[in-house]
């Protein structure tokens, strides 16, 4: 192994661990902010870490079959593959992003959720099945505008390589894709609301409505793996959006800041709007974001 690939591997591991920690950190900040909005104190900042350690230290291990055990692990695999295909900066921080383009990332991103769906199917909890059906329906909803936005981006840049797209946004805020191509940006931002599964569109896990949705039957260590995965997934999704629409980042701190600022947007939207019903969610995504997305695509192509 050459030193170059060695370094790249080390950086990758560091990024994976860092994304877990950063994901938990912004999660706890979000809980704090939610609490302040509701005039509460909120949990301490270390709360997600405590929760995860506690869940890993649970003693019972209930499983209903091999697929339920494998599901969370496959999910973890999917997320890690997504994570290492996204560039986080320059040099080694591009990780393995040159090996795959936007289409690969999109494809791999859904892998984890499908693994999850299989696992829930085996767990056999009716609430879980409802949750998965809802989750996949919502995914079906937001992916149309999202893919419209990404196709427009690919058409505009004549490339599906994330690094090229970042390089093309070089030179000031006005050059960022979100501002240079506002229709594409708006579409992506609206689709992102669905992607983050925050309040108006949290009907998959829908606390207290369908128990806790897909994760109903997963306790203890499974739950711990899922929390870890979710933390990484949030960072991966946000980093991808920052790369595509907000000019990427030259170093990791600016990236962290941009990720956090972008994270605030679905959070505040979620604090204002209550949960949508399933059919409203679907209608919402296939109406305005899709329309704007088509306009953006038309402008991009002609």
């Amino acid at each position: 192994m050459s030193t170059d690939s060695m370094y790249r591997l080390l950086v990758t591991i560091a990024v994976i661990l860092g994304s877990i920690i950063y994901g938990f950190f912004i999660n706890s900040l979000a809980r704090r902010i939610t609490a302040r909005v509701q005039n509460r104190m909120g949990p301490p900042l270390k709360q997600p870490f405590i929760d995860v350690i506690k869940l890993y230290s649970k003693r019972t291990f209930v499983t209903h079959g091999i697929m339920q055990t494998l599901g969370p692990i496959l999910m973890l695999t999917g997320i890690i593959s997504t994570l290492i295909l996204i560039p986080y900066g320059k040099g080694y921080l591009t990780l393995y992003s040159s090996n795959g383009d936007l289409i690969t990332i999109l494809y791999i991103m859904t892998f984890g959720q499908l693994a999850m769906a299989l696992a829930v199917g085996q767990a056999g909890n009716p609430y879980g099945t409802i949750g998965v059906a809802r989750g996949l329906t919502r995914m079906f909803g937001y992916e149309l505008p999202l893919i419209l936005a990404l196709i427009s981006l690919i058409a505009l840049n004549h490339s599906a390589d994330v690094n090229v797209i970042i390089a093309n946004q070089h030179g000031g805020i006005a050059n960022w894709n979100a501002f240079r191509h506002p229709f594409v940006g708006i579409t992506a931002l609206l689709a992102m609301l669905g992607m983050m599964s925050y309040q108006p569109f949290d009907n998959a896990s829908a606390p207290a409505e369908v128990a806790s949705g897909p994760i109903t039957e997963f306790g203890g260590k499974f739950m711990a793996i899922m929390m870890t995965t979710n933390a990484m997934f949030v960072v991966a999704k946000l980093a991808l959006l920052v790369d595509l629409f907000f000019g990427g980042a030259s170093n990791i701190f600016i990236l962290a800041l941009k990720i956090f600022l972008l994270y605030l947007y679905p959070l505040f939207v979620g604090l204002v709007f209550p949960r949508f019903a399933m059919e409203d969610t679907f209608l919402f995504f296939w109406k305005w974001p899709t329309l704007i997305g088509f306009i953006g695509l038309a402008i991009a192509i002609f």
Binding site: R31, A35, Q38, R40, Q47, I50, S212, E217, G219, M223
Partner: peptide, 22 residues
């Protein structure tokens, strides 16, 4: 659990299913 006494300060949280509860 709401704003006056707020048990989330103590790290307490409701969970919807017995599988996840302590």
């Amino acid at each position: 659990m709401t704003s006056r006494y707020d048990w989330s300060r103590l790290g307490i949280r409701g969970s919807a299913t017995p599988r996840q509860a302590d």
